[in-house]
Amino acid sequence: MAKDGSVKSYILRRLLHALPLLLCVVVFNFTLIHMAPGDPIQSLIGEFPAPEAYVEAMRSAFGLDKPLYVQLWLYITNILKGDLGFSFYYRQPVLAVIVERVPATLQLMIPAVLFSALAGLLLGIFSARKPYSLSDNAISSFALLGYCLPIFWLGQMLMLIFSIKLGWLPSQGIKTLGAELEGFKAFADRLSHLFLPALALSIRHVAINVRIMRSSMLEVSYEDYITLARSKGLDEKTIVARHMLPNALLPVVTIIGLDIGFLFTGSVLVETVFGWPGIGRLMYESILKRDYPVLMGTFLITTVLVVLTNLIVDLIYLWLDPRVKYGRK
């Protein structure tokens, strides 16, 4: 990456640009959630009748009696101090609740991203080698199907077939509860739990990546520099690996980056279906429990994660394409 402009200052600049975005996300989520019906205090206290004075005391303890803009201001200044609020339900600081869930989400997301990228690229390349052949048509049909299937339905079907009917894989959770496993056994246990949710989460993105990689490879194969590579007497494998692939990857990398945001959306469904203890399920649960501080916190953290992954993807793009410099973009 020996280009002008240093990587560090580029990263710094990108992060600074992300701040206004994060602020907007915070304000928007805050406003939206406080416009929603339902009283968080009610869900905090529960269904049984409580004395009016107690309810008021709770309200003021959580700052819910103040005007909305004051609450917003407090919320923002607290975030800057690293305080995302206090969970009504867990009775813990929101940050602690979320941080506890981050590893599980990463454990699901990272394999899903890698798998969808790798499988998408390989199938796409293979598909483009012989366009409109039987194998290409098969892969393209699969991609169309994978693109259309709703994630929650796919997740339940996978669970039904592989866990309930065949009993090959566990259906719920991130690991076998109560089992004291160590070393490789623990790893294998986690892997078996990961398999179905990661698959459910990736299929759609495998499909997207296959389609983009295929068309990108085909497009590149008509480029003049491929004719030059042929005229050099290079063999087909070298031409594909050395000349087509690095060029065909460029648009795909961009799409993978944009897709990561949608992957988070998918993870809400997948984590819920498979009882995966990550941020996605936390989001879902905190909606049910009207645990607004946690809900807003998960939105914020998700946004931060999306911004960071997009930055990483952009860095990969910069590294792949010598024509783009750190200064631009």
């Binding site: 480029e223 003049d224 520099y225 004719t227 030059l228 590579a229 042929r230 005229s231 050099k232 007497g233 000349h243 690095p246 060029n247 460029l250 792949l320 394409d321 010598p322 024509r323």
Partner: peptide
């Protein structure tokens, strides 16, 4: 190709691999 017969192409802008 490239050993017995070689070719120089019309448009030097597009015939080199950009990356």
């Amino acid at each position: 190709r490239g050993r017995e017969v070689s070719m120089v192409f019309q448009d030097p802008m597009t015939y080199l691999n950009p990356v």
